[in-house]
Each structure stands twice: as structure tokens, then as C-alpha cells.
């Protein structure tokens, strides 16, 4: 057991898998000698060799295409897209090829690739270093989408993703890389040291894809969230003084529907929180599922707290970001019913 940041935990997961499985290899922009702009692949090239962890041309579509070809042959490539905002040139490869290859070839070929991408805001990254594009992957049948919220989960989920026979989009909340973040941007920064989820077991372990974590239990309202918002929702529940079930989805595909339904049927209220803009966001799907499956248990209209329907703005980061105050408001609104 070692106390790690999320970066160290992800690096450790990759190190474990490079050691364990000769079919695993890593490539992406700046991930080789330099070790990645966020240091997630630090020292992996030095330790495992240049053909196990290497730099790629600045060509996201080419990176994913190459990975699919490798995966179809039988390797387990793990590629890094430097920021999730840069993944769009590769969207055609992910949608038309990675997601469909198994289906259209009747299982003759598949794309067991893991696509890591730092995502989300809270770092003053402006439009092109802050977006949360999870909904556009959740909509694509054939892709899995995983979003960890702490170092322990990050390592276990990443190993599970690499071992998964399906293509996985692995979105890393970069605001959580070096410490938990509850949305109070004006307060002193916190590191991962001293947090129980930062205690990371040595060696190989997995956190299964498709199993949500109930971070805290309560009886009055269910809060559904993932990534950075798990921490924001946690502090907001305290500040609102409500008795909430806080559910960290961990994966939006596959989704742990049983945990969601059981919780909402218990509490009768649901608040959904995500950083991505609201309209067409994954919160809409969650809200629909809750309505379809828990309608007669609901005491209040489900609330969504999300980024506004604008591009991600630079100077207005904290006006855009769905921080604790907005989550508190939503919790209070559902509790009025």
C-alpha cells in the first residue's frame, strides 16, 4: 500500500500492465521520453523500452487508427489523447471503427484498445483544455466510458479497462490529478495525502467496470455524479445539511443501473451533477432512466446541475463550473417537495 496522487496511481497501473502483459504497449503525443504533459507515463519508456511506450505524431485520428489495427491483431494498446478536447479528430475512428468492428465482422475482429484522455475543467484551461465530452461517447453503442474520481479507483479501473476486450474511453478528471477538489476554488489546495482513497495497493488489482460506488449513504435524496463532481457533491451535501446517498457512477457505460434504481426508490429524490453542459448531456439519460424506473417513488422533479450551455469560458470559469453553491440549491429544491 502506497499513498499516491491520481497521476502516480495511473502511472502505476500502466507500469503493472506493461510488466504483466507483453501485448500491452503505450503511445501518444509526448508520452515517450518526456513521460506525458501530465507525467502519467513518466519513466515508463526508460523502464520498459522504447517500443513499449513511445511518442506519436500529432494526429489523433492516426493514433486511434493505428491502435485499432494493433488491437485487431491482438495487442492491447493504451493510447493517450493529450486533452479530451483533442479527441474529436479521432471521433470517426472511434465511432465508425472501434465501436463497430466486433459487430460488423461477427466477432472476427475487435478493438481492445484503451483511450486515456485528461478531461474536465477547473484548471483555467479555456475552451480547448476543459471540456467534458463523455456524452458523445456514451451515445455510441460499442464503446465503454470510464471516469475515476480518486487514485484507488483510477488504478483499478485503468487495469480493468486495459484487460477489457472492448474499446474503452478512459476520461481522467485532470483537476483531481494532484488532489481532491470540492469546487471551493478560493480555498487552500488539498493534496491526496491523508485521503483514504489515495491509499493504493501495490501490484495488480481491478475495480470492475460497471459497478458504481456508494460514497456515502443517506435516505432523503440520491446524488448521481462522477469524476470531479463526486467531491463537489460531497461538500454540497454537507453544506445543505441533507441526508443523501452519494453515488459515484465510475462508468457511464456500462452503467450500474441497479445501484441507481435501488437508491432512488429508497430516497424518492434525485439530483444529477456533471461538468459537461446540460442540454443533451449524460444527465438527460440518467434523468430519463430514473423517471422510467422510479416514477412512482419520486417525491420531487429530478434536478440536473451542469455546466451552462455555452462553450467553456476562460475568465468565467467559476461562473460556468457547477460548484457547491449550485449543487446546494438543487438539493434544497428537491427537499422542498
Amino acid at each position: 500500500m502506497t499513498v499516491m496522487t491520481m497521476i502516480q496511481a495511473l502511472n502505476d497501473a500502466l507500469d503493472v500492465m506493461l510488466e504483466r502483459d507483453p501485448d500491452v504497449l503505450i503511445f501518444g503525443e509526448d508520452v515517450g521520453y518526456f513521460g506525458g504533459v501530465f507525467r502519467v507515463t513518466d519513466k515508463l519508456q526508460e523502464k520498459h523500452g522504447i517500443d513499449r511506450c513511445f511518442d506519436a505524431p500529432i494526429a489523433e485520428s492516426g493514433i486511434i487508427a493505428t491502435a485499432i489495427g494493433m488491437g485487431a491483431e491482438g495487442l492491447r494498446p493504451v493510447v493517450e489523447i493529450q486533452f479530451a478536447d483533442y479527441i474529436l479528430p479521432a471521433y470517426d475512428q472511434l465511432v465508425s471503427e472501434a465501436a463497430r468492428l466486433r459487430y460488423r465482422s461477427n466477432g472476427e475482429f475487435s478493438a481492445p484498445i484503451t483511450v486515456r484522455a485528461p478531461y474536465g475543467g477547473g484548471i483555467f484551461g479555456g475552451q480547448t483544455h476543459s471540456q467534458s465530452p463523455e456524452a458523445i461517447f456514451a451515445h455510441i453503442t460499442g464503446l465503454k466510458t470510464v471516469i475515476p474520481s480518486n487514485p484507488y479507483d483510477a488504478k483499478g479501473l485503468l487495469i480493468a479497462s486495459i484487460e477489457c476486450p472492448d474499446p474503452v474511453i478512459f476520461l481522467e478528471p485532470k483537476r483531481l490529478y494532484n488532489g481532491p477538489f470540492d469546487g471551493h476554488h478560493d480555498r487552500k489546495l488539498q493534496g491526496w495525502a491523508g485521503q483514504s482513497e489515495a491509499e493504493v495497493p501495490d501490484g495488480h488489482y481491478t475495480v470492475p467496470l460497471g459497478k458504481a460506488a456508494t460514497v456515502r449513504e443517506g435516505s432523503a435524496v440520491t446524488v448521481l455524479c462522477y469524476g470531479t463532481m463526486v467531491h463537489v457533491a460531497g461538500v454540497a451535501i454537507d453544506e445543505a445539511g441533507v441526508d443523501a446517498d452519494l453515488i459515484d457512477l465510475r462508468c457511464i457505460v456500462p452503467l450500474d443501473i441497479d445501484t441507481i434504481v435501488a437508491s432512488v426508490q429508497k430516497t424518492g429524490r434525485c439530483v444529477i451533477v456533471h461538468e459537461a453542459s446540460r442540454y443533451g448531456g449524460f444527465g438527460g439519460e440518467l434523468s430519463a432512466l430514473v423517471t422510467e424506473r422510479c416514477f412512482y417513488y419520486l417525491k420531487a422533479p429530478t434536478q440536473r446541475v451542469a455546466g451552462w450551455d455555452t462553450p467553456y469560458p476562460h475568465a468565467f470559469e467559476w461562473d460556468y463550473f457547477p460548484g457547491p453553491a449550485r449543487v446546494v440549491d438543487a438539493l434544497k429544491r428537491v427537499m422542498e417537495h
Binding site: 487508427a65 493505428t66 489495427g69 494493433m70 488491437g71 485487431a72 494498446p77 475512428q93 471503427e97
Partner: peptide, 8 residues
Amino acid sequence: NRLGHAVG
């Protein structure tokens, strides 16, 4: 789309 797969 599959020309890059050949390379991979």
C-alpha cells in the same frame, strides 16, 4: 478509415 489499421 482502415488504411491506418493496416499500419497498426
